[in-house]
Design a protein around this nucleic acid. Structure first.
Length: 195
DNA sequence: CCCTGATTCGC
DNA sequence: GCGAATCAGG
């Protein structure tokens, strides 16, 4: 793949939007993030992190014209416009989005899969967070899972409505932040006296 | 460990 | 000019 005009433009656009080199590379396809970064530099773009200048007055005259930035593209994460049109059937706000008992042969990565907060009491906070997250879930299928996609199962595996969260996992864990929250809930009241 | 960008340097 | 390898943070 070569840097056609279009590709360069997309690169510029995305870079300007603050997308990471890897994301840009993924979008462009056929190039690695290194290629993207290299190009960015050659294009004279680059460095948005220049704030790392130590107070030390370097001999290098930093004639930096950090001014003309008509770049008025706030492009933040716009308001989450949840469609008023909600699913039908049973959006059943289960108080217990408890995963499914399908973690049998599923889940490739041979991850721990400890969850099942069934008998556990999960904070309403966490639950709310989870249901919230599930809206953003990428709804991956088993085959789409990778070492770094949240493997939290949602729905009934015996149903076509079954999928895995798929959001970026929290480093190390097999789940995303929200799911780690409910999955690895402290084993609290477990230390009941046995005596 | 994963991810980010920055740089180098052979091609 | 290109980008893999490598470097340097987080």
């Amino acid at each position: 793949m070569s840097w056609t005009d279009e590709r360069v433009e997309l690169l510029k656009k995305m870079w300007g939007e603050g997308q990471s080199a890897s994301q840009i590379a993924k979008e462009l396809g056929g190039v690695t993030r290194n290629a993207v970064i290299g190009k960015v530099h050659r294009l004279g773009l680059s460095n948005r992190t220049a704030a790392a200048n130590s107070s030390a007055a370097s001999p290098q005259t930093e004639a930096k014209a950090a001014a003309p930035k008509p770049k008025a593209e706030p492009k933040p994460k716009p308001a989450p416009k949840p469609e008023p049109v909600k699913a039908e059937a049973a959006p059943a706000p289960e108080p217990r989005p408890v995963p499914t008992p399908a973690r049998k042969a599923i889940i490739p990565a041979g991850q721990p899969l400890p969850p099942q907060p069934s008998a556990n009491e999960i904070s309403a906070e966490a639950l709310a967070k989870v249901s919230e997250i599930e809206k953003k879930a990428k709804k991956l299928t088993l085959m789409d899972l990778t070492e770094r996609t949240c493997k939290w199962p949602v729905g009934d595996p015996a149903t076509p409505d079954f999928w895995f969260c798929g959001l970026p996992v929290q480093q190390g864990k097999p789940y995303c932040e929200a799911h780690v929250g409910v999955a690895f809930q402290p084993v609290n009241n477990k230390r009941d006296r046995r005596r």
